[in-house]
Simulated scan of single mutants.
Amino acid sequence: MTPLTAWINGIGLIAPGLPDWPSARAVLRGEAPWVTAPSVLPVPALLPPAERRRASRVIKLALGLGLEAAAGDDVARLATVFTASGSDGHNCHAICEQLATEDRHISPTRFHNSVHNAPAGYWGIATKSMAPCQVLCAYDGSFGAGLLDALGQVVLDQQSTLLMAYDSEYPEPLHGVRPLPDCAGVGLLLEPVATPRSLARLTAWTTDASATPWQHATLEPLRASVPALRGLPMLERLARAEWGEACLDYLPGLQLAVRIEAA
């Protein structure tokens, strides 16, 4: 495929022991140790009170990632891409539990939070955005699919685009067959041209080359177990200003090559 290029203007990150991008950047640079801890989900303060009460873990996660990555920007102007391998594990579990009882009535809140595009709907309510929005799922390849979609909008439409890649853990018994350790994800604000805020230049293309083994022994289990964190090797290059290429896991037999350069 033809390489796609954009400029990274903002990053959001939430993961176990990594409550935000500055914390993750310090760990990726080797300036701070990674200490395992449950993921910290910010309160979705932009939502009206009723929607705030109904917001699930995955909705808080997606909004937190997007708002951190787009901090200081007019979020209503941004096209958005939401991508997740399975979305809301806890809500799925609760619905399955209810359906296994004699009373199979599902609450309206459970039902409307069950759809894959629920975080995108809450984002629209919170930000009042009328910009284009895409919602994707490609199982373990969801990060790569979302990044390619976002880059395509940036390049073809010359549209500032906010990518939110996120995943939520499942309680047992689903956890036994889909063992995500916690909810986690990455947000990227991508621009078609460089600005004074640009952090790096990103170029991506598909390849049949093998994915580059990641040498960060501490965080490798997180990268491997949470599809939304497949981009951590790319973010490590950016955090360390070690410009160059990495090959990320994407789909079986197809990887995603990325090159990070100074802005």
Rank of each mutant, 00 (worst) to 15 (best):
P3G: 10
W7R: 00
I8V: 15
N9P: 00
I11E: 10
L13W: 06
L13Y: 10
A15E: 11
P16L: 08
P16Y: 05
D20W: 02
W21F: 11
S23K: 03
A24H: 10
G30T: 10
G30N: 07
A32Q: 14
W34I: 13
A37Y: 06
L46Y: 03
P48E: 11
P49A: 13
R54Q: 15
A55G: 12
V58L: 13
V58F: 12
L61A: 07
L63T: 04
L65G: 01
L65S: 01
A70G: 08
G72Y: 07
D74F: 01
L78W: 05
A79E: 14
V81P: 01
T83K: 05
A84C: 15
A84Y: 11
S87T: 12
G89H: 05
C92S: 14
H93L: 03
I95V: 13
I95N: 02
I95W: 05
C96D: 10
Q98R: 15
A100T: 09
H105V: 13
S107H: 05
F111A: 06
H112M: 03
H112V: 10
S114N: 12
V115Y: 03
H116G: 06
H116L: 14
H116K: 05
N117P: 01
A120E: 12
W123H: 07
G124A: 15
G124L: 14
A126S: 12
T127W: 01
T127M: 09
M130E: 14
A131K: 04
Q134R: 06
Q134G: 07
Y139G: 09
L148A: 08
G152L: 06
V154H: 03
V154R: 00
V155A: 08
Q159V: 09
Q159K: 14
Q159C: 11
S160N: 07
M164F: 08
M164T: 15
A165V: 09
A165G: 12
S168I: 04
E172T: 13
P173V: 13
P173W: 12
L174E: 13
G176L: 11
V177I: 15
R178I: 12
P179Q: 06
P179C: 09
L188M: 11
L189P: 01
T195C: 04
L199D: 08
A200I: 05
L202T: 10
L202E: 13
T203P: 02
T203M: 10
T206M: 10
A211Y: 07
A211E: 15
P213S: 11
A217G: 00
E220V: 05
P221M: 06
R223P: 01
A224W: 02
L232Q: 04
M234F: 10
R237S: 06
L238M: 14
A239C: 07
R240A: 07
E242H: 07
A246R: 04
D249R: 03
L251M: 13
G253L: 09
Q255A: 15
A257W: 00
V258D: 04
I260W: 00
I260H: 01
A262C: 11
A262Y: 00
A263T: 00
